[in-house]
Design a protein around this nucleic acid. Structure first.
Lengths: 193, 193, 193, 193
DNA sequence: AATGAATGAGGATTCATTCAT
DNA sequence: GATGAATGAATCCTCATTCAT
């Protein structure tokens, strides 16, 4: 039965199962066994591929961050003006594939993981740095030296909306979330904050 | 050694130990034993008083929320104008006793807990409702019907700053956090968004 | 509040609570705390009076056996012929105060206890010896040397009916139980087995 | 060391160890650890295969009842007349493999378990129903409508002898037990009770 | 490549029992 | 006499992880 080239397929399945399982559980209290069963493989295989539970979680984080990154890149490709690019970056975070139940739940838990596992912290910081750098880059032409500060505000607002979505309160849909952030951006741009 | 009336003292000690332990660990992966040892009692006593680990966590949440609530009430007592009251509410969340390492860490984890334990979700929602209602009440005279929307934006921003503080990134000090939110509020008020 | 002469009252209450608790639980898996609470005293007091859990169980056994013994003695007092005395002994075991749910349940569990705690075994054996001796004494005039054997059969039958009552199967009422044993006795007497 | 197809072997070993352990202890107060050690495996494996302590006990009950049932079936296979079948049923219960120390001890404790765990009660009731039905079936030709009543008496007598054997008093050997029941059956048949 | 078998380590929880008041 | 306070010891159970096949 073991086929050639199964590894990438299995890894992908395990990563997806991990995210789904975390989403279902609402926490990182998920067992490797459950993840493996959901992916249709044995727990031993999960270990074989990833080396350990922590690595499985990290792979899931990487997957989510990569997916987010790809979304941003895609959105940026079609944007011409700084403002259009800003809107693109903001919208990307709330696009359907990043803003669904399971992903949001996983995201919240990765914040926790980032406080515990150094490598997880590194991953999350890379994402944040990239987000901020994207924002700053396009804010600079609009607000000048206030860019870093405005960027931080926007980033915090985005994270806050995410976190509130994780609680089931607040907006369940990405369009409204995007609109909210965009509106704040409007105000901050009006006077150059 | 056994004195009378020890119960409230032990409970308080255990709650403090729980928050500190969660803060240290960065996650809810703390054992009752460690909490108890930190509080200077046996694990059995912790169970005796609270009934179980989950209840201990809930007690810690209640403590943190109550402390926050008291801070808000205190701050509101000295504020006269709507804007002053808004600033008071915002500042209360970032006051030193609410915005220290351990409390922030515990807070983040309570967000997770809220997704898993219904009672925890209820507690957090009560806090959010109260915060929103405070904000809406004082925004109404300033922005009219936009009040709920502005309130939601402010609440999300506050939560976002909290979460980022939990990651060790962003502002470590409450004054700056307060200032950031206040500045956004300024902009939002200017045009009555 | 402590009154003089409370001890016998408390002991009695604790013994009754023990039997009731065992009856409710269906097993000896009852805690001293529960027993004490049911008796309206603290667990510490139960220990103070009895010395330990095992002693509490033994006291309950003694109580049940004593109650049974008293019933037998009372029944024998009014019986004149050997057969009447046999019937009296049989009926005593199935009288309402010995054949209620809780007592039957406790009884079954004391059989278990008898295999574990030597003193419990001794108590049960004393009861059995007395029952057998009563039966033999009155069977002798009726069946001669077969008396010990017939007695053993009757005793086993009585125990069997008890045990089956404990399971909720078979007869729930003492009159029928008595009749059953009496009928068997009739047959055994007919030919002097 | 891990071979394939170990599961049934381990299960069997654990069940045997459970019966032996209960027999030794004289009660259900045996730990999973001790059972597992006796079976030569870890406690974790016992849980892995059975799911929990209660299930282990149930498996042991099922084993004992199945063994008893097999013995009855075997004995019935060689019996031609109703009376021979009755004797076979009676003797089966007291055959060496059903009437040894450990099994008797376990049996008594299963009576207790039956009062506490519904599934255990169901198992025991199935056995009792089957025994009664066997007896009634073969008593009918001999005593007509009195069959159910005589069957109940015999069943109670059998249980009673069992229980007394559990106490270490009375007959330690099955032959005598069988003879005792057979003799009572003789008497009950003489007049058709 | 993949898995069933197996376990060590650890944690929540329960409870009888002790003791100072 | 009576109890709240407190704990050590035990036990069930879970789970990540390893290993031979």
């Amino acid at each position: 039965m073991p086929k050639l080239g199964m590894e990438p397929i299995r890894r992908e399945a395990l990563v997806q199962a991990t995210i789904a399982e975390i989403g279902d559980a609402g926490s990182l209290d998920v067992t490797v066994s459950r993840i493996a069963r959901r992916a249709g493989v044995s727990a031993a295989l999960a270990h074989h591929y990833f080396g350990g539970k922590e690595q499985i979680f990290l792979a899931a984080m990487r997957h989510i961050l990569a997916q987010y990154g790809a979304g941003v890149r895609l959105a940026l490709a079609g944007a011409r003006t700084p403002r259009a690019r800003l809107d693109a970056v903001i919208a990307a975070g709330f696009s359907p594939e990043n803003f669904d139940e399971a992903t949001i739940g996983a995201w919240l838990n990765f914040y926790v993981q980032a406080r515990v596992v150094p490598e997880a912290g590194r991953l999350l910081r890379v994402y944040q740095r990239r987000l901020r750098s994207n924002l700053v880059h396009d804010l600079r032409p609009l607000v000048g030296d206030a860019a870093p500060d405005v960027a931080e505000t926007l980033a915090a607002l985005i994270d806050g909306i995410y976190i509130r979505a994780a609680l089931g309160e607040g907006l369940p849909d990405g369009a409204a979330a995007t609109a909210r952030v965009a509106r704040v951006l409007d105000r901050l741009l009006e006077t150059g904050e």
